[in-house]
Amino acid sequence: MVGTFLETERLTLRRITAADADLLVELDSDPAVMRYLTGGVPTSRERVETHFLPRMLAHAERGHGYGFFLAHEKASGEFLGWFHLRPDPDGPADEPELGYRLRQAAWGKGYATEGSLALVEKAFTELGAKRVFATTMAVNSGSRRVMEKAGLRYARTFFADWADPIEGSEHGEVEYSVDRSEWRK
C-alpha cells in the first residue's frame, strides 16, 4: 500500500490524508462506534472536514513520526478504522498517547490489540518514546482490555469536566501507560 507507515501480520497502517474524509465520516456515523465518545451521536461531515481532519493532519506536520493512521486489512484492503500515536499538545513530545477507533465489523478480531502492540513497539524502538499512555471511559471495558493486551497497565482514574457528559462519565476516565523500561521486560 502506498504511503505505508507500519505493517503487522494482518494490518497495513498509513497516514491519514485529506482525501480520507468519507472514511472518517462513515466510521463516526455508527452510534455504537461513538458510544464512549459522544454517547452515540454521529460526527457531521462538516465537523470532520473543518475540525477533526485538520487536527489529525497537523500531527504529521509536527514530525517525530507520530500522527493518525488509517488501518486496512492486508488481505482484503478493507478499511477497518484508525489508530493514533501522538503526544498530548500540553505534554512531553516523548510521551505519546495511543488511540484507536475501529468499525464494528472489526471488533472482537484482535485488530485493535495487533495495531496497538505494533505502535507501542515502534514508539519505543524507532521514535524515542519514554512512555506511552492511553485513556478511555472507566466503563469502556473493551478498550481497557485492548490497553492491557498491548502491555499498558492501569495508572489512574480521573474525572474530566465535560460540557456534555454522556452515560457512564460519572465513573470517570482511566489512564493506562507503560514506560520504556517496563516495556522491555
Rank of each mutant, 00 (worst) to 15 (best):
H64D: 14
P42Q: 00
G40Q: 04
G91R: 11
A118V: 04
F83C: 10
A129I: 07
R45K: 15
E49Q: 15
R62Y: 03
M1A: 14
V120C: 08
M56P: 02
H59D: 13
R86V: 15
T43F: 10
V48P: 00
E126C: 13
V48D: 00
F133H: 15
P31G: 08
R101Y: 05
E97W: 01
E126V: 07
G151R: 11
S29W: 05
S29A: 15
R55H: 14
T38M: 01
L24D: 01
A155T: 06
A106P: 02
R131T: 07
V146W: 08
L80H: 02
R15V: 07
V41N: 02
L6H: 12
G142H: 06
V178I: 13
P42A: 00
E95N: 03
F52D: 10
P89L: 04
F79L: 10
D90T: 13
A19T: 10
G142P: 06
T50M: 05
S181M: 05
R180W: 06
R55K: 11
S76Y: 04
A160I: 04
S181A: 14
V146I: 09
R15Q: 13
A150M: 05
G110H: 03
A163K: 12
L57F: 11
P42R: 00
G142W: 02
V41P: 00
F79I: 06
K74A: 15
N140C: 03
A129M: 07
R145D: 11
Y176C: 01
V178E: 05
F158G: 03
T12S: 12
D94P: 04
Y154N: 03
H51M: 11
L11N: 11
T12H: 08
S76N: 07
D30E: 14
V178S: 06
K149C: 00
R14N: 01
S141Q: 13
W162C: 07
A106S: 11
F79T: 02
A60G: 14
K130N: 14
E49W: 03
P42D: 00
E73P: 06
V139S: 05
L117C: 11
F124H: 01
L27I: 01
A106I: 07
S181N: 06
G108E: 04
E126M: 08
G65H: 07
Q104S: 06
T4E: 15
T135C: 14
E97S: 07
A19P: 03
A106E: 09
L127T: 09
K149L: 00
A19R: 15
T43H: 09
R156L: 13
D28T: 15
L117D: 02
